[in-house]
């Protein structure tokens, strides 16, 4: 599942494959701004069934945060 999440983030933010790793933080990726974050969270729910609540979504700052909040 973690692999799928990473691939989906790359797809949604239209990044080169391999750009995102488990250690990536949002700050380091230009496309991962507030709009990018919304697009990622929405897609995680639609494509992978990972539900992250609105309030939690605001706190996400890294790939690790996503893994923790989605419990994967």
């Amino acid at each position: 599942m973690r692999e799928k999440v990473i691939l989906l983030i790359e797809e949604i933010l239209e990044l080169e494959p391999g750009t995102i790793t488990e250690d990536t933080v949002a700050e380091d990726i230009a496309e991962w701004d507030s709009l990018g974050q919304i697009m990622v969270i929405g897609a995680l729910e639609e494509k992978l069934g990972l539900n992250i609540s609105l309030e939690q979504a605001l706190q996400i700052k890294s790939v690790k945060d996503i893994f923790t909040l989605a419990d994967i």
Partner: peptide, 10 residues
């Protein structure tokens, strides 16, 4: 709710 975007990814 997240960003006043009414539409799904698709």
């Amino acid at each position: 709710y997240m960003g006043k975007i009414p539409y799904s990814t698709n």
